[in-house]
Write a protein that binds this DNA or RNA. Structure first.
Length: 582
RNA sequence: CGGUCAUUAGCGCAGCCUGGCUAGCGUACCUGGUUUGGGACCAGGGGGUCGCAGGUUCGAAUCCUGCAUGACCGACCA
């Protein structure tokens, strides 16, 4: 081999500067170590370059994903990052998606977008190609770059604008077939996380969001740094994203008391009113006032005072994409007095009325009186209003009961590292993608789609596996299996013996990096800790005397001495041992 | 989208309030030497459009205006 090429994968030539300085803007451990270890370099907000050790980890994660996708008969493809506007118009999403999709014109002025997901592209790919039921079912996947112009990227690789995603799309004749395949993918995902060494992952029911469709699950890495809130019933096995979680309400029956006005000067917030009247916030009601984007009418949502509007549920109930808070004029038009708003005595035909389940049976609550400085005691929905569309329009909160159970919910946080959706025929209908069934009749494909965020998973792996000095990579995804430190490299032939061993290990397929720099022990060890290879080998003046090296695991104080002559066997045995543990 | 703060060498920062010689410190980097089991030491050295654009001034890293970029926090409670 050329002497120039031989320098590769030696610490002296590794690109990616490690530093003991803590980056100023990094809060999360994963973010700190990714920067301190020379894994990533930020180019812009939420846009990062990946340096060699990070790319190596990514390749290993991708190889595991690829292997699992192939096991469930996936066919790997590559779709473009840049797509013409036209296919996004076909699906109707061009106007449905907001500014998170980057739009631009090419040199001829024809409009294009950057792909943030690839349902449109895959349907375009398949619809003229797959024409017979005999070709179904099938699954197509890719590992590719997505760009989403997020409002706020943060936390290193946890939330970014440009990222690598494995996305897969399946096509079926029947809902049953989709349902079965969906379960296959679910199991496949469980194997992916396990093989990568990410253990604390659960799947939860989730919102279908911009994807459309009915059934959906998200795979959540459970950790406080997560941006999603999870609602769990530990005994009943209930698991859902807060966005779609349901609860149920139980109230002790009370006699309905008479409505009664009460003077509440300048007290317009729930907190002030409940304090003034000596009531709990659960004994109050409030209205949230919104504008309907299509007919411009006021939306009135009645909630128990302590609860928070679930905007996703509201949008779903009214089948709209956006909601905004109502302007004061619109509120007054409907006959509602801001700050003391109420539904008592207003013309209900002028508004969209949504009733949260929390108030339906909640007895004798305080609500606004619709005039300045007054509230009304003892409102009872069924007696005093009994109108509107009842549903769950508030988020589940601490103290709520798990649906169909008397257990209190457990609330925790998670990072979404994967998602699976049953799309049904949404895209195949909108984009006119059909095949001929065995009766020669045209049918729309029934579809599913399945995503895994590669970089986000990498960051979660650091969150799960690290100590004070750096990441402790599971051997299946580690940038190197073995980190070989040569101490006192100038002395007693250590450098030569070490580099020979390094070449021998490489020749036997061991993924090894050698620290060939003439650096102090602590300096080398600190770098080794930041790189986080699971196995460490050391050759030094002490060990070379008996032609030995020292073998230890990342983060462990236990060391054993082995003969260099039998190093390959010893290291391979250790690698096998670690792999067997995953 | 709103608020707050920031931007000076690869990284972390000082200098700015009160304008003034060649812009400084730590770390990292280069050369030579001594060192080597948890981030060594000595000597020498290289590296800066002080985020950008205007303005004030004899003179701007420093004062003023605008812009850009980034970070953090917030975004139902009428």
């Amino acid at each position: 081999m050329s002497p120039y090429l031989e320098k590769i994968m030696k610490m002296s030539h590794l690109v990616g500067r490690r530093t003991k300085d803590f980056p100023r803007d990094a809060e999360l451990k994963s973010h700190q170590f990714l920067l301190r270890g020379g894994y990533i370099k930020q180019l812009s907000s939420g846009i990062y370059s990946m340096l060699p050790i990070c790319k190596k980890i990514t390749l290993k994660i991708e190889a595991i994903i690829r292997d699992e996708m192939n096991k469930i008969e996936g066919q790997e493809v590559l779709m473009p990052v840049v797509m013409p506007k036209s296919i996004w118009e076909e699906s109707g999403r061009y106007s449905g998606i907001g500014t998170e999709m980057v739009r631009f014109d090419d040199r001829t002025g024809s409009p294009h977008v950057l792909g943030m997901t690839h349902e449109e592209a895959v349907v375009h790919m398949v619809r003229d190609d797959v024409t017979s039921y005999k070709q179904l079912p099938l699954m197509i996947y890719q590992i590719q770059t997505k760009f989403r112009d997020e409002k706020r990227s943060r936390g290193g690789l946890i939330r970014v604008r440009e990222f690598t995603m494995k996305d897969a799309y399946s096509f079926h004749q029947t809902e049953d077939c989709l349902g079965e395949y969906y379960q296959e993918v679910h199991s496949s995902y469980e194997r992916i996380y396990k093989r990568c060494g990410l253990t604390n992952v659960i799947s939860v029911e989730s919102d279908t969001g911009m994807m459309g469709g009915k059934v959906a699950h998200e795979f959540m890495y459970v950790n406080a740094c997560g941006e999603d809130t999870l609602i769990l019933g530990e005994k009943s096995g209930y698991k859902a994203n807060k966005e779609v979680a349901s609860t149920h309400f139980k109230y002790d029956a009370e006699d309905f008391k008479d409505l009664q006005e009460v003077h509440t000067p300048d007290k317009s917030t729930i907190e002030d009113v409940s304090t003034l009247l000596g009531l709990k916030q659960t004994q109050t009601g409030k209205v949230v006032l919104l504008t309907h984007p299509e007919d411009g009418k006021l939306i009135v949502l009645l909630l128990r005072g302590d609860r928070t509007m679930n905007d996703i549920a509201v949008k779903k109930a009214l089948m709209i994409n956006e909601i905004e808070f109502a302007e004061e004029d619109l509120i007054k038009d409907a006959g509602i007095y801001p700050g003391f708003g109420s539904l008592l005595g207003i013309d209900l035909s002028k508004v969209h009325l949504l009733i949260d389940e929390s108030v339906v049976d909640c007895p004798n609550i305080v609500v606004g009186a619709n005039k300045k400085d007054y509230h009304v005691l003892n409102f009872n929905f069924k007696r005093d209003l009994n109108a509107g569309q009842i549903g769950q329009y508030s988020f589940v909160q601490e103290g709520d009961l798990v649906i169909d159970s008397d257990e209190e919910v457990t609330i925790t946080r998670g990072v979404e590292v994967g998602n699976i959706f049953q799309l049904g025929t949404k895209y195949s209908k909108d984009m006119k993608a059909t095949y001929l069934d065995n009766n020669g009749k045209q049918q729309n494909f029934i579809m599913g789609c399945y995503g895994v965020g590669v970089g986000r998973m990498l960051a979660c792996l650091i969150e799960e596996h690290h100590d004070d000095y750096g990441p402790k990579w599971p051997i299946s995804v580690a940038p190197f299996e073995v980190h070989l430190c040569l101490l006192d490299a100038k002395k007693e032939g250590i450098a030569q013996r070490g580099l020979d061993l390094y070449k021998e290990l490489k020749a036997h397929g061991v993924d090894v990096i050698v620290d060939d720099r003439n650096e102090k022990t602590g300096f080398q060890f600190a770098d080794a800790d930041l790189i986080g290879a699971p196995i460490r080998m050391v050759i030094s003046r002490k060990t070379i005397k008996n032609d030995e090296f020292e073998l230890s695991l990342r983060g462990s104080k236990d060391k054993e001495l082995c003969s260099i002559d039998s190093a390959v066997e010893a290291v391979k045995a250790k690698i096998a041992e670690l792999k067997a543990q995953i």
